[in-house]
Structure formats: C-alpha cells, structure tokens
Design a protein around this nucleic acid. Sequence first.
DNA 1: TTGTGTTTTATTGCCTCC
DNA 2: GGAGGCAATAAAACACAA
Length: 262
Amino acid sequence: MAGDLRNFQYSSMDSGRLFFDPSCQGNIMFIGNGDPAFRVFVTSDTCYLPVHLLEKSFETENKLEPERKSQLANKLGLQPRQVAVWFQNRRARWKTKQLERDFDLLKSSYDSLLSDYDSIHTENHKLKVEVLSLTEKLQAKEVAAGAPIPAPKSDPPPLPPPPEKEEDIVTHTSTIQLNVKAEDHLSTGSGGSAVVDEDGPQLVDSGDSYFLNNDYPGCVVQSVEDDGSEDGRGYLRCLWRWNRNNMRRESHWAGGSGLKFF
DNA sequence: TTGTGTTTTATTGCCTCC
DNA sequence: GGAGGCAATAAAACACAA
C-alpha cells in the first residue's frame, strides 16, 4: 500500500503513528501498517477512530435505523451485523452506567432522609424529656397547693438513645411500639405540638404530616388530607417501612399500593 | 510467567411489534 | 412470520499484580 507515516494525536489516550493512504481521497488513514481494521477517519480538524465514529453516532441516537446502520457499515468497512451488535452492546453498557448513576442518586437521597430521621428522633426525645419534667413540676405544684393529684395512667419508659448507625436504627426502631391510631393523629389537628399517646411512649406527630400508624405496622406514614381529587377524600400513605426482617427500609413492596383513604 | 479480573465482541433464546 | 431489541452468556483480548 502506497503512502507515508504521519504523527497522529486524537486525545491524550489515542496517539501514535498513522499510515496515510492517499488513495482514499485524503480522508482515511490507518494506524500502523495500514491494516483496514485500524483505519482512522480524518476531517479538516478532527481524527476519528472507528470507535469514535460509532460513539459519535451513538450520542446522536442510541437506536440504529437500517439506513444509518448501512451507512456506518460502509464507512467503517464492517458488516451491518457488526454495527448492530456494537450498538446493542453499547446500549447495555450505557444502561449499566445509568443504573450506577441512579443508585448513587438514591443513596444520597437515602442518606439525607436518614439524617433527617436522626435529627427528628433526637428532637422527639428532647421533647419527651421536657414533657416529663413539666409534668413533674406541675404535680409538685399541685401537692404544694393541696390539690388532689390525678394518678398518672402510666409512666412512659425512657426512650433509648438515638441511633447513630443504620444497624442501630433497625434494632432501636423495633423496640418502639407503633400503636398510635390514625384518629389520634388526625385529632391532634393543627395544634402542631408533639403528642404522647396515652398508651405509651409513642409519640409521633409533631403536627406535621409524618407519623407512625397502626394500620401500617413499621411504616412512617404521611397524611394527605386533600389530595386535590374531586371526591375530597384524603388518604394515608406509607412513605417507607422496615422490611420483614427489619434489615432495611423499603419504599415499595409487593401486595399493596401503600394508600388508605379516609 | 501465570493467575485473575475486566472489557469487548459475538451468539443464543426469548419477547414484542408491525 | 420476520425484524429488531434485550438479557444472559461465551470467548477472546487485554491489563495487571504477584
């Protein structure tokens, strides 16, 4: 094959010596000794290795219509089937990468939620301690004034300390009885203050719309009182819950929509 | 040099759409 | 029924550490 060797630099990764083939109308060169498998496409300002040409085409459209397949195959000196296979494998690689990106996004979202959970849990504990302290002060004041003292229904046991690691949260959460009923939540209305359920220490609503609910064991539930639909109904929605073995949180599970209308 | 892990190319079987 | 897509996987090439 007639021609000469020229320096080639496509990028920091792709460089070397090219065999320039003047018989190819000046726009195709070959890496090394001219093996057609290593041809390079040259425009006025850019060199394309075959894979670059395929990549460029893939960026434009990741599906390959027959006409474009034939064009690429002709240009690259490949069988149309090889071009099709390349696109197929390229789509598979893209999908894998996309899954990795999605996973990273979900993980950062999960970490953020976990952080929110921790701070809410800490705040919850502080408020409970404050309620107990104020209750004791009130009782002492009533004793001093000679007023009859209503017997407390029960002394809520102290909450365990807030979890610090994900594994701790699993254990810790399983120690809390989730027995606040939806009515309890709804009856707290717009007061916005933390409420201690009279059966125990499960507090749960700070007046916002996230709480624990017996209809959804293990769930953190959101109450949506007006979903914007014409029927005017609201609904409860399980935002996430611990899976069966309390090993991890899950936001979707088989067997239900996670919605309960009221 | 060799064992091991990764990447790329190609094949197979199944599914969907026209 | 044929074309094309996808998932799974085999085979070859390649990279790299011991």
